[in-house]
Amino acid sequence: MSGPILKLENLSKAFGAVQVIDDVSFEVPRGARMALIGPNGAGKTTIFNLMSGTYAPDRGRVIFDGRDITDLPSRKRIGLGLARSFQNIRLMPHLSVVENVMLGQQSRAGSLGAMLSPLGARSRWRRQAEALLADMNIDTYPGEVVATLPYGIRKKIEVVRALAAQPKLLMLDEPAAGLNPSETAALRDFLVQISEGGTTILIVEHDMGLVRSLCDRAVVLNFGRLIYDGSTRDVQKDPQVLEAYLGSRHAGEGVHA
């Protein structure tokens, strides 16, 4: 198959009088590692929520893998291959690590038979989930309840949970937030590994170091508008992007990191 994996066409969304997303269009090429950046409040997470179906857009269309999914219920999107992580970790606190990952398999296991067969030690779902955790080098005990685990590991588990759906496009919302430099470097290798497995990655991230070393392309949002769509190498030379960042309180921290 060819063509972009994801296409946003003229998306707009307002909350009350505030135009959060204003006529945004861009494409995510198949197999790309793409960044969605912009100052705080630019509408990045809203774009994610529009893509995953948490919000319905006021205008515009979301086209995934050649199919218009604008009106598709949020629950069905992950089954098509659109999986995401969240800005604030949203793992199920009372589920163990492996159970959280098995929850990620749900889109492939929703039949009545799969729902009613046990997920014991010999179940193929559990073995798949454990294998995926091992592949991704998460060497914590998989039976541990996630509420007690450290932040960095939970952040990674959330990515693995999304991967368990075997997505075509993985959307990550600030995966490096709250991580120290060595954890961030590990996360980068982890994402490269995922990408080499053939999964397209769209990432919202403030850490420009991570963005530049991971992504080849970037789109930049400011006040809900698209102001840049091109390579990550040139993004910091773009006058509009510079203005957006320097005019905001993130001037010093983001772009030159």
């Binding site: 995953s52 179906g53 948490t54 949020s74 629950r75 069905k76 999107r77 992950i78 089954g79 995401r84 969240f86 949203r90 199920m92 606190p93 009372h94 589920l95 159970e99 929850l103 990620g104 749900q106 889109s107 929703g110 949970r161 759906a165």
Partner: peptide, 16 residues
């Protein structure tokens, strides 16, 4: 149990 913990995320995971 997932719905008990977080209904919105369960939905995004494909749970009916």
């Amino acid at each position: 149990r997932a719905i008990h913990d977080d209904e919105d995320v369960s939905d995004l995971m494909g749970v009916s």
